[in-house]
Structure formats: C-alpha cells, structure tokens
C-alpha cells in the first residue's frame, strides 16, 4: 500500500484517488470532471515535452498538467508497477 501524488506516477500505472488536496478553483474543476475520491484511474502517457499528462478515468481520457496532478493523492495499485517497469525497459531498449 503506497500513496503517491498523481504527477509521480508512471505510464501504465493505475491507482485509486484518495484525496484532492488543493482548495482552489482548479480543485472544483477536477472534482466536477469526475476526479473524486474512490475513483480509479490509469496514466496513459505524458506529452512529448513531458507535461501535461493523459489519464484515463470513468471511461474517458483527461489531460492535466503535472502541477495540478500534484494535488491529487493516489493509492497506487502495486501490481501495475511491474507493467510500468517493463514498459520503461522496452523504451530504453
């Protein structure tokens, strides 16, 4: 059981949203787009320049900057860690 923020996740990893911590307008936008606690999500890819990132949740794909993703706490699904490692190794090769 490991809790990290969304921006620290790697491509292919998934997890369950624990909390959205910020108290700004952006927070409400995220909540309204369905980024609410107990929702599961998956990281699909990062933009060519490394930011923003694409995530999949509630059956659709959402684009979000890393600085905003840092406000979202995720309970990481450890099983997907292996997928991410394997993908990373593939890309390096």
């Amino acid at each position: 059981m490991k809790i990290i923020t969304l921006d620290k996740m790697q491509v292919g990893q998934s997890g369950i949203i624990q909390n959205v911590v910020d108290e700004s307008v952006i927070c409400r936008r995220l909540l309204e787009m369905g980024v609410t606690p107990k929702t599961s999500l998956k990281v699909v890819r990062f933009a060519p320049l490394g930011d923003p990132m694409e995530i999949e949740l509630r059956g659709y794909h959402l684009l979000i900057r890393k600085c905003d993703a840092a406000m979202i706490e995720i309970l990481l699904d450890e099983r997907t860690q292996m997928n991410a490692d394997k993908r990373g190794a593939d890309e390096r090769r």
Binding site: V25, I26, R29, L30, M33, P52, E54, Y60, H61, L62, L63, I64, R65, D68
Partner: peptide
Amino acid sequence: PPFIMELP
C-alpha cells in the same frame, strides 16, 4: 490558466 481538458 489551468489545463484540464478532455481528450476525445
């Protein structure tokens, strides 16, 4: 401005 966009 925040970048929170749907990718259709």
